[in-house]
């Protein structure tokens, strides 16, 4: 775990924690407004969290080529997460929110 300096580790940990808290904040945001669509956005943020975990695991083992599969997994979950985010934002479009 020494491929990353302590400050760089903290930057990673902070990003992940912020993302998790943001998911919770999106849930509350939707509840306050009584707009259930926001739950989909919170859920759509999950693949990116998984992606981040994969990246951090790879860093934890000092970025070895043997764990290159983790990087591919991270790329895949990033793609999946971004598709999910787009779909969630689609449900929030004003012309769709009436129904």
């Amino acid at each position: 775990m020494h491929a990353l300096s302590l400050p760089t580790w903290w930057i990673h940990v902070a990003s992940v924690l912020e993302w998790m808290l943001a998911m919770a904040a999106v849930m509350r945001w939707g509840e306050r407004r009584a707009e259930p669509q926001w739950r989909w956005l919170a859920l759509a943020m999950l693949p990116a969290l998984v992606s981040a975990m994969a990246a951090c695991t790879w860093h934890l083992f000092d970025n070895p080529i043997e764990l290159q599969g983790l990087v591919v997994f991270q790329a895949g979950t990033t793609l999946l997460g971004n598709v999910a985010l787009a779909a969630a934002a689609w449900t929030l479009l004003p012309e769709r929110i009436q129904s």
Partner: peptide, 16 residues
């Protein structure tokens, strides 16, 4: 993860 490792992740990142 072995099979995954053979995949080039770059296009996935670009596509995302």
């Amino acid at each position: 993860l072995g099979a995954l490792a053979a995949v080039d992740p770059s296009p996935l990142f670009v596509l995302s």
